[in-house]
């Protein structure tokens, strides 16, 4: 997925395998993936809505549907936004404070906040 996210154009399974291979050589991982393995992973990612497949060309070319940052933003939106349904699955550390609360906290703890608020 990282390779697809980093690639400016769409990739075929073979090209993807090649760049994975290059990366693996750089990180000294000895076991290359078979193209079929890459294809299997790609079609799974397609079902899950991460990548899209261009069937008009042969071999099929794959593109990431959203950027990595967009995915992250969407996910964090789910986490931070008060959508009760989407929060059911997780337990978050803390929420934001109101300005009045912030003032009280500053007095209590002497926390310097100028750089954050």
């Amino acid at each position: 997925m990282d390779v697809l996210w980093d690639s400016p154009t769409s990739l075929t399974a073979n090209e993807l395998r090649q760049s994975l291979l290059n990366r693996d050589i750089a990180s000294a991982r000895p076991k290359p993936l078979a193209t079929t393995t890459v294809l299997t992973v790609l079609s799974r990612l397609e079902t899950k809505g991460f990548v899209t497949r261009d069937r008009s060309v042969r071999p099929h070319a794959y593109t990431a549907l959203m950027t990595r940052a967009a995915h992250t933003a969407g996910l964090m939106h789910d986490v931070l936004e008060q959508v009760p349904d989407r929060q059911a699955a997780l337990v978050r550390f803390i929420g934001g404070v109101s300005p009045e609360e912030a003032e009280t906290l500053r007095q209590l703890l002497g926390v310097a906040t100028s750089d954050n608020s």
Partner: peptide
Amino acid sequence: APAAASASLTHEVVSAKPEH
């Protein structure tokens, strides 16, 4: 997040709604 699809999402990463 330059993708158009996420623009509406990121705009309200944290909204001013009262916290749970």
